[in-house]
Amino acid sequence: MKRSGPLLTLLGGLLLALFMLSLNATTGTRATSSSTTNDPPPASASPSRSPSPSPTRTSPSPSPTPTPPADADYTGRTDDDSAAIAVTLRDGKAVAYFCDGRDKESWLKGDVEDDGGMRLTSRDGAELNGTLKGRSVSGTVDIGGHEYGFTAPETVKPSGLYRATANVRGAEVDGGWIVLPDGGQVGILKRDGKPSTAPEIDPETGAVTVDGQQLTARPVTP
C-alpha cells in the first residue's frame, strides 16, 4: 500500500498535465480560427481616374448689324439721253422722278435694301428697278410701256430734285425739276393736270415765276 500511493499520485499528475495541454491546444486553435474569420478582407485599391477635360466651346462671332445706305442725292440722264432721272435717299427710303421735260413724267417711291437694291413704284404704274453701287444708282425705269436704262451719279446741292405745288390764278399747279451737275434743268409744270415744259428755277433759292406769281420749289425727300 505504501508503494502504490506515490505511483498513483504521479500518474494522476501526469493525466492532469495531459488534460491541461490538450485544453490549451483546442482553445488556441479556436481563437485563431475566429480571428481569421472575423477580420474584414483588405480593401483592394481601385485605380484613380483623371477627370476628362471639358470640351472647349467657341462662342459664335456676332453677325455685323446691317446698315442702310447713307443719305444722298443722285441725278443723271437716261441711256438714250431722252429724259432725266433724280433719286433721293433718306433713312433707307427713296423717292425718284423721271422727266423728259415735255409731257412724260413719273414720281416713284419705295424702300432701299441694305445691299443698295431698290424697287420703286408710282401711282400711274411706272416702276424703277435700280441698285446703288459705289457712288451712283443705275437701273431701268419702265413707264408707258417703254423701258429706259439710266445711270445717276451722286451729286451735291444745288443739284438735285425739286418740287412746287400751288394754286395760281385758279389753277392747280404742280411742278417738278431735276437740276443736273452741269447746271442744266429738266422739268414739267402741270396746270390742272396738263403738262408743259417748266420754267427754270433759281437753284440757290428755288424761286420760280409761274403765270406772274412767284413760287418756291423745295428739295424733295421721301
Score class of each variant (00 low, 15 high):
112 V>A: 00
52 S>Y: 11
113 E>Q: 13
44 S>R: 12
38 N>P: 00
117 G>D: 10
122 S>H: 04
58 T>D: 11
118 M>D: 05
99 C>H: 02
112 V>W: 07
39 D>W: 02
130 G>Y: 12
75 T>K: 02
67 T>G: 03
46 S>V: 15
93 K>H: 15
107 W>V: 08
95 V>C: 01
100 D>E: 08
50 S>H: 02
129 N>S: 15
86 A>P: 03
70 A>L: 10
67 T>H: 09
77 R>G: 06
45 A>E: 06
101 G>Q: 11
97 Y>L: 13
40 P>R: 13
105 E>R: 01
113 E>Y: 00
93 K>M: 12
81 D>Q: 15
66 P>Y: 02
130 G>Q: 05
111 D>R: 14
67 T>D: 13
47 P>E: 14
81 D>P: 00
124 D>A: 13
55 P>K: 09
70 A>T: 15
104 K>W: 02
62 P>Q: 14
123 R>N: 08
50 S>D: 08
51 P>Y: 02
43 A>N: 10
59 S>A: 12
97 Y>F: 15
119 R>V: 15
97 Y>P: 00
62 P>M: 11
90 R>P: 02
68 P>L: 07
76 G>S: 09
60 P>T: 11
101 G>F: 07
69 P>E: 04
57 R>Y: 11
81 D>M: 11
101 G>V: 05
83 A>D: 01
116 G>T: 11
124 D>N: 14
49 R>G: 08
114 D>W: 03
64 P>Q: 14
132 L>G: 04
109 K>Y: 09
115 D>S: 14
124 D>P: 02
47 P>G: 00
83 A>N: 03
110 G>H: 09
113 E>W: 01
69 P>L: 10
50 S>T: 14
65 T>W: 05
131 T>Y: 04
67 T>E: 15
72 A>L: 05
87 V>S: 10
121 T>N: 08
45 A>Q: 09
64 P>E: 15
51 P>F: 09
66 P>W: 01
120 L>F: 12
85 I>T: 02
61 S>H: 04
87 V>D: 01
67 T>L: 09
73 D>Y: 06
78 T>M: 12
69 P>T: 13
66 P>R: 00
61 S>M: 12
47 P>H: 09
101 G>M: 07
129 N>Q: 14
107 W>G: 03
113 E>D: 15
41 P>K: 08
51 P>G: 08
118 M>Q: 05
69 P>M: 09
98 F>Y: 06
130 G>S: 07
68 P>M: 07
77 R>V: 11
66 P>M: 08
118 M>I: 06
67 T>I: 05
50 S>N: 03
46 S>N: 13
108 L>C: 05
93 K>A: 15
44 S>V: 15
117 G>N: 08
119 R>E: 05
116 G>E: 11
56 T>Y: 14
